[in-house]
Amino acid sequence: MERQLLTREGHHDLLKEMDHIRKVELPKNVQDIAEARAHGDLSENAEYHAAKERQSILSAKLRELEEILSIAEIVHPLPEVGEKVVFGCHVTVFNPDNDEENTYQIVGQRESNPTMGRISLSSPLGQALLGKEEGDEIRFKAPGGERILEIVSVE
Rank of each mutant, 00 (worst) to 15 (best):
L15E: 04
M18S: 01
E9W: 08
H49I: 11
I71G: 01
H39N: 14
A46F: 13
C89W: 01
E44H: 10
V75H: 06
E73R: 14
S70E: 08
D32W: 00
A46P: 15
E53Q: 14
A72E: 09
P96L: 01
E44R: 11
N102S: 13
I57K: 14
A51H: 04
C89N: 01
K61V: 09
R54K: 13
T7D: 10
A72I: 04
R37M: 12
N95A: 14
H76L: 12
L65Y: 09
V30R: 07
A36P: 12
R63P: 03
L42T: 08
A36H: 07
I21E: 00
E73H: 13
K16W: 11
A36F: 12
E9M: 09
T7R: 04
K52A: 15
N98G: 02
H12C: 07
R37H: 12
Y104M: 03
E67L: 10
T103L: 04
A46N: 14
V85S: 07
F94E: 01
S43T: 00
P27Q: 05
I57P: 09
D19Q: 06
N102W: 13
A51N: 07
D41G: 01
I57A: 10
E67I: 05
R54P: 01
P96F: 08
S56C: 03
L78H: 08
L15C: 06
E17V: 00
V86N: 02
